[in-house]
Design a protein around this nucleic acid. Structure first.
Lengths: 135, 135
DNA sequence: CGGTTTGTCAACCATTTGGTTTAAGTTTTC
DNA sequence: GAAAACTTAAACCAAATGGTTGACAAACCG
């Protein structure tokens, strides 16, 4: 009852491919303030005050953004004295990059296959044009 | 009045580095249903009914997800008759990948620099240890 | 023509997000 | 010990998200 036979093959990979970690990573990257924080941290460690200073928002707001980055495991903090020092973490980003890479790979492979199919159809049409079936 | 001199250099790149397109792309990728739609579309074109079928949600909900993907320019639709046929678009994803790549580059370069700094500090400490200053 | 398929729109709802302000908790410093 | 620095917590708010249902508009098929 699936719409098309070729769709069933693809369904192996999806239906509901839950991945809360990936959700959190992409969501964390979806806000300019959080990307700014990450870019800042890419230059080295900073505490919360330093991170919040250039952002045009209140300190608690910036603190919440850092917390979002932590939930996505993109940032880790260590508390030394009264300051909370943050640094970036690489592994979660790798997963996101891997998803994008696989997506692109799948997509480009399909394009090649589509080109081949079009060539084949063109060749078939050249040989026998009497058989006229739509769809 | 900026906290540290080295911070001012980095501030060129940020403060408020608005990029609504990037926001939309990452936000679009942050939901499992939308990633599933993209993976499905990576295998070829589909209309809305086909996209909505495997998703455990109402048709209008799925339609909204496709609309989010369209606003992010990750998906384009063409209307033929009563069916809306969707296909993936590659360029916006490239921008996201570029951001991730630059972020990683910046971050890894800093790690190298940090290693060099640690070596230098170790060497200095070896030569003259009388100067004992905390921080 | 009438019914079915395909899809949108509008209204509604619960939850999350992103922001604020004010208060409170720890360290450090003087 | 008092003040200042660095953060969190709590209360609150507006807007966005993610989902539902029901009504409607086309387009296709019989």
């Amino acid at each position: 009852m699936v719409d098309k036979p070729c769709a069933a093959v693809i369904l192996n990979h999806m239906v509901v491919n839950r991945s809360p970690r990936l959700d959190r990573v992409f969501h964390a990257l979806a806000h300019p303030a959080r990307r700014a924080i990450l870019q800042r941290l890419a230059g080295g460690e900073h505490n919360l005050s330093e991170l919040a200073a250039p952002l045009r928002m209140s300190f608690p707001a910036a603190s919440k953004h850092v917390r979002v980055l932590e939930r996505a495991r993109l940032v880790r903090r260590r508390v030394v004295g009264r300051t909370h020092i943050c640094r970036v973490e690489g592994k979660p980003l790798e997963e996101a990059e891997r998803w994008l890479e696989e997506y692109r790979r799948h997509w480009e492979r399909n394009f090649l296959r589509l080109d081949a199919l079009l060539d084949q159809m063109k060749a078939e049409e050249r040989e026998k044009k009497p058989d006229h079936r739509r769809e």
